[in-house]
Design a protein around this nucleic acid. Structure first.
Ligand SMILES: [Zn+2]
Ligand SMILES: [Zn+2]
Ligand SMILES: [Zn+2]
Ligand SMILES: [Zn+2]
Lengths: 160, 160
DNA sequence: GGCTTTTTGTTGTCTTATTACACTTACTGC
DNA sequence: GCAGTAAGTGTAATAAGACAACAAAAAGCC
């Protein structure tokens, strides 16, 4: 059982679709979707939670796909750079992108109780951010929005 | 020379005002504004840039105010917890708050070329974020918005 | 003064991330 | 197919960032 963001869904399909999507995108862009990279993406997709690089490495180690930190970091860098995963700065952790393919400004809702993460998007242009940036002559490349809070499941637990 | 955010200003006044502001607030709240804490705030205020905990520690060390990491981390934690400074997650670094006192949702414009940071604010409620969070039953406690980009000064340098 | 709470000093350790270099695999042009 | 080049992997070592734990000192309180 798991949650897409916080709502239930067909998670097995969710994983295979994510991998297939990435495979296609790599194909199209002439990128090498190597075994390690594929596996790391699967590992991230397996949980809608942020995982530390060393958590990922632990999986790889058990499967004989690599045992030193750079193996995990390199795969994660690849996934992040090409938009298949995101880094949650606040947690020093990584998560598979659920809107892969589309160019998007991600927003993360992070449960501080169970560490599950939901990804959504926004339009930076519409906000005061764009206005404020323009006003001082700052040109924005990338925006990170991370909201800490409590997910529905954990709120229910607290109430119980 | 320096920049308030990215615009020029009376920086000496900017520092003393920040410290005085914090001193008053601590007084009022019954908090101890100890020498180390004061000094760390001054160090942060001295530059409108994000400084790592170990950068701060280096200053303290030279001034004989402490030499071990916990000294810096404790002072920084105090300042962050009480709203006199913020942590820039993206940089693992800290910056003095320029809107101290007011309860605010900070937004940071971070220059990836020179690491200067400008703080501005927004209204989370008005945005899609609040809407999206409400829709899935997620309750938001704190929001971090960090925009990477290029500040006016660095844009000028590039153009040159 | 005596008691409690807060802050500081210090040691040690843990987590996260990167550098460096040898080696292998994959692509490219012929 | 095969050299030459670019991209990716294996491994060791180390840097950078952060915190737990405990003893000593200082501040607040009665
Ligand atoms: Zn799923
Ligand atoms: Zn939760
Ligand atoms: Zn200033
Ligand atoms: Zn602030």
């Amino acid at each position: 059982m798991s949650a897409f963001g916080f709502t239930s869904h067909d998670h097995a399909a969710c994983i295979s679709a994510g991998v297939a999507q990435a495979a296609t995108a790599c194909q199209a862009a002439g990128l090498q979707f190597t075994p390690v990279r594929r596996r790391v993406l699967e590992i991230l997709l397996a949980e809608h939670r942020a995982m530390g690089a060393y958590d990922v490495l632990e999986h790889l180690r058990r499967e004989g796909l690599g045992s030193q930190p750079p193996v995990a970091y390199r795969a994660l860098d690849f996934l992040v750079k090409n938009g298949f995963a995101h880094k949650i700065e606040r947690l020093n952790a990584f998560i598979a992108c659920t809107r892969s393919g589309k160019d998007h400004a991600p927003v993360f809702l992070i449960c501080s109780s169970c560490a599950s993460v939901m990804e959504t998007t926004w339009e930076p242009g519409e906000s005061q951010l764009g206005v404020a940036a323009d006003a001082v002559g700052f040109s924005v490349n990338a925006v990170v929005v991370e909201a800490m809070g409590t997910c529905p499941a954990c709120r229910a637990d607290i109430g119980r």
